[in-house]
């Protein structure tokens, strides 16, 4: 019995040592991650906006649209875990079909925007960005007011 207890004890220690590598995200981690994704999106969108309004040169146009398209995909995934808190309203999960539809739309349109930036440059991006960056449409319904 003592040997068995020692074995179990040793196993628990080994498990604890390995745990940090495979740790499950707690609620704070889930919220922090989605906030990081949204911060990246916000800063990249602001950068793209500055190019569109000719405040800065357009050298980085394609990169900003590509980063936005990638982060749009990351954003959808980051809200899959139903963890209330942060700036997200409970409606994200209560009206999840609508939220997901809006996210899918955002993913699809930012993907098109990134492709357009490569082929058509600033003029085409300016035409499409209002339709692609529908941030406010989602924030008005699903984000707590700042």
């Amino acid at each position: 019995m003592t040997r068995f207890v020692k074995f179990i004890g040793g196993f628990a220690v080994a498990a604890a040592l390995v745990l940090p590598m495979t740790a499950q995200a707690d609620d704070k981690d889930v919220i922090d991650y989605r906030e990081n994704v949204m911060k990246t999106l916000e800063a990249q969108t602001a950068s793209l906006g500055m190019i569109a309004s000719t405040q800065v040169p357009p050298d980085n146009l394609v990169q900003h649209t590509e980063a936005i398209a990638l982060m749009a995909k990351a954003a959808k995934k980051s809200f899959e875990a139903k963890v209330l808190g942060g700036e997200a309203k409970p409606e994200v999960w209560a009206n999840n079909a609508d939220f997901t539809k809006k996210m899918d739309d955002f993913v699809a349109k930012t993907d098109i925007l990134a492709k357009s930036a490569k082929t058509g440059g600033v003029p085409v991006v300016m035409e499409q960005m209002v339709d692609a960056l529908t941030c406010k449409g989602c924030h008005d319904v699903y984000r707590n007011k700042k």
């Binding site: 602001a46 500055m50 405040q55 980063a67 980051s78």
Partner: peptide
């Protein structure tokens, strides 16, 4: 303002990546 936006997004994207590498965020991302 522009370079601050770039650095802000780098900071947030790095934090996001580190969270994944520490098992705190979805590895799918």
């Amino acid at each position: 303002d522009y370079r601050k936006n770039v650095m802000k997004s780098l900071s947030a994207a790095s934090a996001g990546l580190n969270a994944i590498l520490q098992g705190k965020a979805p590895a799918e991302n």
